[in-house]
Structure formats: structure tokens, C-alpha cells
Amino acid sequence: MTVRREASCRCGALRAVCEGEPVRVSACHCLACQQRTGSAFAAQARFPADRVTITGEARVWTRVADSGNTTDYSFCPTCGSTVHYSGGNFPDAVAIPLGAFADPGFPAPKFSVWEERKHPWTVVLGDDVEHMD
């Protein structure tokens, strides 16, 4: 049986249903992710776009990175939660913030990126995580 996971915003109006396992689960310490989350890092899961079904109204904000790549962030116009984003280095995938799944059993990150921006007091990820600057 295929795994089915559902993510949503805080008020429940914007949802993403993901079929199967994520192709990548990562923690990112870049300044843009810190600003997006209001935290010291972000954790997200990426799924192939054809395995994600989005329902509900979303507003979109597009960020242009220093590289010139663009990422479209979709958030709930009522509660403001980012539920999914796409583009950037993974144009064929949809990223979902792990907190949107509200599932403490969600698979742990296997990648930690932008570590040169990591706060020295940030939580330590498991020994099986690939650390990338």
C-alpha cells in the first residue's frame, strides 16, 4: 500500500496530499529559510510534483535567489502558513515544510545544507545526515 501523507496550514484551508515517500528530506540553514520560518533553520520534504495534490486557495510569493533561480512560495491567505513551494534547484519537485504534516513520526532529514549559516547552538541532527555547506 502506498504511503499517503497530508499537510495543511494552521487553519486547514490550504492542503497538500503527498503519495509515496519523499525523495529528499532536508534541513536548511540559509538566511532565506530562517526568515521564512522565523526559526534558526527549516526542515522540508520534497516529493515529485506529480505525486502532490494541492487543494484550497493560496497566495504565491516568488523569491529570486542570488543564483537567479526563482522559488514560488504558496501560503494560506487566511493564516499565513507556507504549505508548499517549488522551483529553485529542484524544479520538478514540490517541497513541503515538515511542520505542515504535524507528524512527529515523519522521516528525519538526511541532508543538512547551508551549514556555514548554521547557528552554533542549533540542534544536532543524527549521525546519518550528510552535511553540506
Rank of each mutant, 00 (worst) to 15 (best):
R59E: 15
T122H: 07
G56Y: 04
V94W: 01
C76K: 08
D92H: 11
W121Y: 12
C79Q: 06
G56N: 07
A32T: 09
C28N: 08
L125W: 08
D103Q: 09
Y85I: 01
P77C: 09
W61R: 11
V94P: 01
F41C: 09
A65C: 05
V94T: 15
P97Y: 00
G88Q: 09
R4D: 05
R5S: 13
A40Q: 08
F90Y: 02
R51I: 10
K110G: 15
T2W: 01
F111L: 10
G126P: 13
Y85M: 10
S39W: 01
V123N: 05
G126S: 15
L14E: 03
E116I: 05
P22T: 10
E21V: 06
G126L: 10
R59T: 15
A58T: 09
C9H: 01
V113P: 00
L125E: 14
P22I: 08
G105R: 11
E130L: 15
G56R: 04
S81I: 04
W61F: 15
S74P: 02
S39A: 15
E57D: 14
T122D: 15
Q35F: 04
Q35N: 05
A16R: 00
A40M: 09
R15Y: 06
G88C: 13
N89Q: 07
T78L: 13
E21F: 03
C76S: 14
S8A: 15
C33P: 12
L125N: 10
S67G: 13
H119E: 08
V83M: 02
P77K: 04
A43S: 11
C33D: 11
E21Y: 03
D72R: 08
R117Q: 13
R46M: 14
G99R: 03
G68H: 05
P77V: 06
F90N: 05
T78A: 13
